[in-house]
């Protein structure tokens, strides 16, 4: 028996596109609800989001959605109208494109590109363009400052992110995310293959680099200077209202979801479960990947709710003087081990 239905590639692609269209807002909502509203409220003793609707404030997110829906669409008089209108779409598009290559099971991937992880990092950095467009077109000093800070930060932390992934690519010998999952599934720890070999065991430096860099890419605390509310109000988003603002939100949390999924795939073995193959892997893969990505996301948001904001010069210094040299050293060391063994 096989689950793969024999329908044309066109209808398959259409179905997969619809799945991606639902997964991204859903993932953004789950992260927003579980972590931003509930976990943050518990950790920081915030009473507001725990109140609406009775049990644990379940109604808060619904209420937020309804509020966005009825906000007037205000565009500043001096704004570059077309660029201003399109900028949130560019940000959300870059989030969508990342999901093309994330595998949820042996057959559950939109397209398993050969350049997989490289493609994912390339399209995820397209959001810089949207952010710069938003900040520039707003014709607002806060927005421009925020956009420039965001651009400088995103490109500075793009490099540790890339370098962290190279170690995994060396070990797996492929850039395809599906290939990376399989090579972890078939790997052996000192000759014992019972659990496969999650790259977490050998690439822990890579995982640490990846988590720090993705925290900065997502402009989350302690790297949230571009949207620092006490200095820049909301940075490049300051002039946005209603749905256009909501799209920045979906972009941010959708990208957090995507980065957590990529980290789970690269370092924790993705959808793979020891000893499960074929159809069962297709059925159990998505929940397993979801569980792994929630663990990663928990750590990302834990840091976000705990640490204070860095200064702009400290931010650049951490990237250029510490993370990038560390990433290069990690690549050379991994290469040495790969060639030696």
């Amino acid at each position: 028996m096989t689950l793969a239905l024999s329908i044309g590639w066109g209808s398959t692609l259409a179905i997969k596109t619809i799945v991606v269209l639902t997964v991204i807002p859903l993932g953004a909502l789950i992260l927003g609800y579980v972590f931003l509203l509930k976990m943050m409220s518990h950790m920081q003793s915030r009473l507001g989001p725990m109140d609406p609707g009775g049990f644990h404030g379940w109604y808060q997110l619904v209420g937020d959605g309804l509020k966005f829906l009825q906000k007037e669409d205000v565009m500043p008089a001096q704004a570059d109208r077309r660029v201003f209108a399109v900028a949130p779409a560019v940000v959300v598009m870059s989030t969508f494109l990342v999901f093309l290559v994330i595998p949820m099971g042996p057959d559950l991937v939109v397209k398993d590109l050969d350049v997989g992880v490289f493609y994912a990092l390339a399209v995820s950095s397209l959001s810089v363009v949207g952010v710069l467009m938003a900040g520039w077109a707003s014709a607002n000093k806060f927005a421009l400052l925020g956009a420039l800070r965001a651009a400088a930060q995103l490109i500075a932390y793009e490099l540790p992110l890339l370098l962290a992934v190279v170690g995994v690519v060396i070990q797996a010998g492929t850039m395809s995310l599906q290939g990376i999952v399989l090579s972890q599934q078939h790997g052996k720890i000192f000759g014992w293959g019972g659990l496969g070999e999650p790259f977490l065991l050998t690439q822990f430096v890579g995982l640490a680099l990846f988590l720090v860099a993705s925290q900065a890419e997502l402009t989350q605390t302690p790297f949230d200077m571009p949207v620092a509310e006490s200095e820049l109000v909301a940075g490049y988003m300051v002039e946005y209202t209603g749905f256009r603002f909501l799209f920045f939100f979906i972009g941010e949390f959708g990208t957090a979801f995507a980065f957590a999924a990529i980290a789970a795939t690269l370092f924790l073995g993705g959808w793979a479960i020891p000893g499960v193959h074929g159809d069962w892997a297709n059925i159990l893969g998505p929940p397993v990947l979801f569980a792994k990505l929630m663990i990663i996301a928990f750590f990302m948001f834990w840091v976000r709710f705990t640490y204070p904001r860095l200064r702009e010069d400290q931010l650049q210094a951490v990237a250029w003087k510490f993370l990038i040299p560390l990433g290069l050293a990690n690549i050379l060391l991994t290469g040495l081990f790969k060639v030696a063994f």
């Binding site: 494109l97 093309l100 397209k111």
Partner: peptide, 9 residues
């Protein structure tokens, strides 16, 4: 597929 996903977004 890349183009289709962009269009869908």
């Amino acid at each position: 597929a890349v183009a289709v996903l962009m269009g869908a977004a």
